[in-house]
Amino acid sequence: MLVEVEKIATFPRGRVLAQVQTGFGRAAVIWRGDADAGPGAYFVEWTVDEAITWGRNARPAAGTGPEVRHGGHCVVLRGRLSPVEDGAAVLQVDDANILLDMTDPLPDGVDGMWVELFVDRDKIALSPIRI
């Protein structure tokens, strides 16, 4: 996915955050690229390092279409959710597919549904990739 990095900042304990803008929202997330990288366009891969539990940090979305936004201490991602083998799932957010670890199987009827994930800001990251 192509994002616009607005700024990158290093915090205590070496945590690096990037403020990113997409065509469907913006958020600050962990940056797994060069901490000295400047603002600009980057192709990135999203990683969610938090187990997803339906009804706790995942629920049906109020709207449709991809979205990323701040949600207090978390980042909210809206996309289409689909189960895959081994109890995992994939969230499709625009042209990005984000692999998720699920704590339980998804309920019936969720496959392909627009959902919102609420992920702790320290558990969601972007890694720049070369295309």
Rank of each mutant, 00 (worst) to 15 (best):
Gly63Gln: 15
Arg32Asn: 14
Gly38His: 08
Phe24Ala: 07
Pro39Glu: 09
Trp46Lys: 02
Gly23Arg: 13
Val48Asp: 05
Ala62Asn: 00
Ile30Pro: 00
Arg80Met: 15
Ala37Ser: 08
Ala37Ile: 07
Asp49Met: 13
Ala35Met: 02
Arg69Asp: 07
Pro83Ile: 08
Val44Leu: 02
Ala51Ser: 10
Thr64Arg: 10
Arg26Thr: 11
Gly79Ile: 05
Cys74Met: 04
Arg59Asn: 11
Thr22Trp: 06
Asp86Asn: 15
Arg56Gly: 02
Arg26Met: 11
Arg69Tyr: 02
Val84Pro: 07
Gly79Val: 04
Ala61Leu: 11
Ala35Asn: 02
Thr47Pro: 00
His73Gln: 12
Val29Glu: 00
Gln21Gly: 03
Gln21Ser: 12
Gly33Arg: 08
Arg59Ile: 14
Arg26Glu: 11
Arg69Lys: 12
Gly25Asp: 03
Gly25Trp: 00
Arg26Phe: 08
Ala61Val: 07
His70Asn: 14
Leu77Cys: 03
Arg69Pro: 01
Ala58Thr: 10
Tyr42Phe: 11
Asn57Leu: 07
His70Glu: 15
Phe43Val: 05
Pro83Lys: 13
Gly25Phe: 00
Gly40Glu: 07
Phe24Glu: 05
Arg59Leu: 15
Gln21Phe: 08
Pro60Gln: 09
Gln21Arg: 14
Gly71Tyr: 08
Thr22Pro: 04
Gly65Val: 08
Thr47Phe: 09
Val76Asn: 07
Ala28Trp: 09
Gly65Pro: 04
His70Met: 08
Asp49His: 13
Pro83Leu: 06
Asn57Val: 11
Cys74Asp: 13
Asp86Tyr: 14
Ala51Met: 13
Arg80Pro: 04
Arg78Asp: 10
Val75Gln: 01
Arg59Ala: 15
Val84Ser: 11
Pro39Cys: 03
Gly72Glu: 00
Glu45Thr: 12
Ala35Ser: 14
Ala41Ser: 12
Ala27Arg: 01
Ile30His: 00
Ala28Leu: 08
Glu45Lys: 10
Pro39Arg: 12
Val84Ala: 04
Arg32Asp: 09
Ala61Gly: 10
Tyr42Ala: 02
Gly55Val: 14
His73Ile: 11
Glu50Lys: 08
Arg78Asn: 09
Val29Asp: 00
Tyr42His: 03
Thr22Phe: 10
Phe43Glu: 08
Pro39Gly: 03
Ala41Pro: 00
Arg80Tyr: 05
Arg56Asp: 07
Glu85Gly: 13
Arg78Ser: 10
Asp34Ser: 13
Leu81Ile: 15
Trp54Cys: 05
Ala61Gln: 10
Arg69Thr: 06
Arg32Glu: 13
Val29Cys: 03
Ala62Leu: 05
Arg59Gly: 15
Val68Glu: 00
Trp54Leu: 06
Gly55Pro: 06
His73Gly: 14
Val76Ile: 14
Gly87Ala: 10
Gly71His: 06
Pro83Asn: 12
Gly33Asn: 07
Ser82Arg: 15
Ile52Ser: 01
